[in-house]
C-alpha cells in the first residue's frame, strides 16, 4: 500500500486516473484503501428532473447510483437509496444555494455540489465540491487557457455540539491542470494536486454553514496561494537551475 501511494506521488498528475485503475487491478484487496486515499478528478451528471448538473463522489453514491443535491433523487433511480435526515437535508439545501454563490464569486462559472450525512458519533459530515473548466472552450473568461481544470474536494467532519462549541475537521484536496499553447512559446503545462487538513473549534451560534464556509474559504485561498507561490515557484526555480536566465550569464561573461 505504501508503495502504491509512492507511485501515485510520482506519476504525472494527468495520468492519475490510469495509474489508479492499474493499481486497483494489481491490488484488488486494497481497493477500498486506494479509493479512499487517492483523489480522482470529479465527474458530473445531469439531474434530469431539474435540468442541472451535479458532481459525483463517493459521498453521494449508493450502489451504482448518485444522489443529486437538487432533487434529492438518485440517478439512475434507486429504491431505498440512503438519504440524509430531514433536518440535515434542510441544511444541505441551504449550503448548496449559498455555496453556488460563493463559487460564482471566486470561479466565475463552474459547478458545485454539497452533500451531507450523519456519522456515528452524533455529528455529521459535509462534502463541498467544486469543478471548474477554465479553458477557453469552457468557462475561462479571459481565454488564456488551451486546457484548464480545477477540482476541489472539501470534506468537513463536524463533531457534536458541546457547550455551544463544535469541532470542525476539514480535509481539502485541489487537483488542477492548466495548459497554454502558442507559436512563439510552444506548449506550457502545469498540473498537480495537493491535500491539506485544518482543525478548528467554533461557536455554533452563528450556524454550521457560516463556520464551514469560512474554513473552506480560508483553506481554498491557502491552497491556491501555495500552488501558485510554492509549487509552481519550485518548478520555475528548477528551470532556472537547469539553464540560468541570460542576465545571470551576462554578468558572469561580460565579453561574450
Amino acid at each position: 500500500m505504501e508503495a502504491a501511494m509512492g507511485l501515485m506521488r510520482r506519476i504525472h498528475p494527468k495520468h492519475s486516473e490510469t495509474a489508479l485503475s492499474a493499481l486497483l487491478s494489481l491490488l484488488p484487496h486494497h481497493s477500498s484503501d486506494l479509493l479512499s486515499q487517492v483523489d480522482q478528478p470529479l465527474q458530473v451528471l445531469c439531474d434530469m428532473d431539474i435540468g442541472k448538473e451535479f458532481i459525483l463522489c463517493e459521498y453521494n453514491r449508493d450502489a451504482d447510483s448518485y444522489r443529486s443535491p437538487w432533487s434529492n433523487k438518485y440517478h439512475p433511480p434507486l429504491e431505498d437509496g440512503q438519504l440524509p435526515s430531514a433536518e440535515l437535508r434542510k441544511l444541505e439545501i441551504e449550503a448548496n444555494d449559498v455555496f453556488a454563490i460563493y463559487r460564482d464569486q471566486y470561479y466565475e462559472g463552474g459547478i458545485s455540489s454539497v452533500y451531507m450525512w450523519e456519522d456515528e458519533n452524533e455529528g455529521f459530515v459535509a462534502c463541498f465540491l467544486i469543478k471548474k473548466d477554465g479553458s477557453k472552450a469552457g468557462q475561462g473568461r479571459r481565454g488564456y487557457l488551451e486546457e484548464g481544470s480545477w477540482d476541489a474536494i472539501h470534506v468537513i467532519e463536524v463533531g457534536p455540539e458541546d457547550e455551544g462549541i463544535a469541532h470542525y475537521c476539514l480535509t481539502s484536496t485541489v487537483m488542477l491542470s492548466l495548459t497554454t499553447r502558442d507559436e512563439s512559446s510552444g506548449t506550457f503545462s502545469l498540473s498537480g494536486s495537493i491535500r491539506r487538513q485544518m482543525n478548528m473549534d467554533f461557536a455554533v451560534a452563528e450556524g454550521h454553514l457560516c463556520n464551514m464556509g469560512r474554513m473552506i474559504e480560508e483553506m481554498e485561498s491557502k491552497l491556491r496561494n501555495s500552488l501558485d507561490q510554492v509549487y509552481f515557484g519550485k518548478t520555475r526555480e528548477m528551470v532556472c537551475t537547469l539553464r540560468p536566465p541570460s542576465e545571470v550569464l551576462q554578468v558572469r561573461l561580460p565579453d561574450s
Partner: peptide
C-alpha cells in the same frame, strides 16, 4: 520539472 513535497506538481513544456 517535478516538485513533490506534500503534493505532486509537474511542469511539462515543449517547443
Amino acid at each position: 520539472a517535478h516538485y513533490f513535497e506534500e503534493g505532486n506538481v509537474q511542469l511539462d513544456a515543449n517547443h
